[in-house]
């Protein structure tokens, strides 16, 4: 019998490998259907969008019960701001998971790895399950692991760019070298095939927002991404054949040796 492909993150056992975002939807009331189509268990929400005067309204009201809430620190420009936003999220009852997002660049929206390491260190010490969004750099990834990150989340391409795994070679190095925590590819995945590619490479999961939220039919696109992630994962588990530059004949060219 086929064994269920479960994995561990932050003390929880997960079956889904597709995390969702919430930021760019036209209608948040479709979130339950999107989550169901994606089979998602983890969903990220920007604290900047949560109305602290009425937290039960707005985006939180549409997130199905039982999902793991992953508040993110969108808007933070420094480690200190990210830490304070995370504490605020926990104080509001949004749980103790946090996606650290520290961006000091309004043009490319690239994360600041150095500040992210500092915030990770502080928040992990305070008991948060810290999922840091980062530029795929081996040294930074190692520092994040040492700082207590529960996973590392390298970007495939700049946020919202839909360009897929533009950082493929750098993510491959992380997948090769970082084994202590899962690698979750975040940002830039514009098509289900991009997510499949990340999973084929051995990523533990993908986080997708823009491509699903801005699709004509977000529910159908969520399902498409779930299939892409599942297909890529299955291929990874099945053992991907090595890629070669030259052709490899189906009938061995040296087969004549057998008859000698």
């Amino acid at each position: 019998m086929e064994r269920e492909d479960v994995w561990e993150l932050g003390g929880r056992t997960l079956t889904s490998r597709l995390f969702l975002g919430t930021g760019k939807l036209g209608d948040e009331s479709c979130l339950p259907a999107v989550c169901a189509a994606a089979g998602a268990e983890v969903i990220t929400v920007a604290l900047r969008r949560v109305d602290l005067q009425a937290p039960d309204q707005g985006v939180l009201a549409h997130i199905p019960d039982g999902m793991i809430l992953l508040p993110n620190t969108s808007g933070a420009r420094t480690a200190d701001e990210a830490v304070r936003l995370a504490r605020l999220a926990r104080a509001m009852g949004c749980g103790h998971w946090v996606k650290i997002e520290i961006i000091r660049d309004a043009r490319y929206l690239l994360p600041d790895n150095e500040a992210t390491v500092r915030a990770t260190e502080i928040l992990a010490r305070e008991g948060f399950v810290v999922l840091p969004y980062m530029s795929p750099d081996l040294y930074a990834a190692r520092s994040l692991v040492d700082a207590g990150a529960a996973a590392v989340m390298p970007l495939g391409a700049p946020i919202g760019s839909n360009r897929g795994l533009a950082t493929r070679e750098l993510i491959a190095i992380l997948l090769e070298e970082i084994s202590a925590v899962p690698i979750i590819v975040d940002a830039g995945l514009g098509r289900p095939s991009h997510a499949a590619e990340a999973m084929e490479m051995g990523a533990a999961a993908c986080l997708v927002n823009t491509a699903i939220a801005t699709a004509e039919d977000p529910v159908a696109m969520a399902r498409a991404f779930a299939l892409g992630v599942a297909g890529g994962r299955l291929a990874y588990l099945a053992g991907m054949p090595a890629v070669r530059q030259q052709a490899s004949a189906s009938s061995p060219l040296t087969g004549f040796l057998e008859g000698l």
Partner: peptide, 24 residues
């Protein structure tokens, strides 16, 4: 906005500052 398939957002910033955090 809803009629056009767009989401009206009423809050898109979380200020920090001691007074603000205490109020929150």
């Amino acid at each position: 906005l809803r009629q056009q398939g767009l989401q009206p957002v009423f809050k898109d910033w979380q200020p920090l500052g001691e007074a603000r955090e205490q109020a929150a």
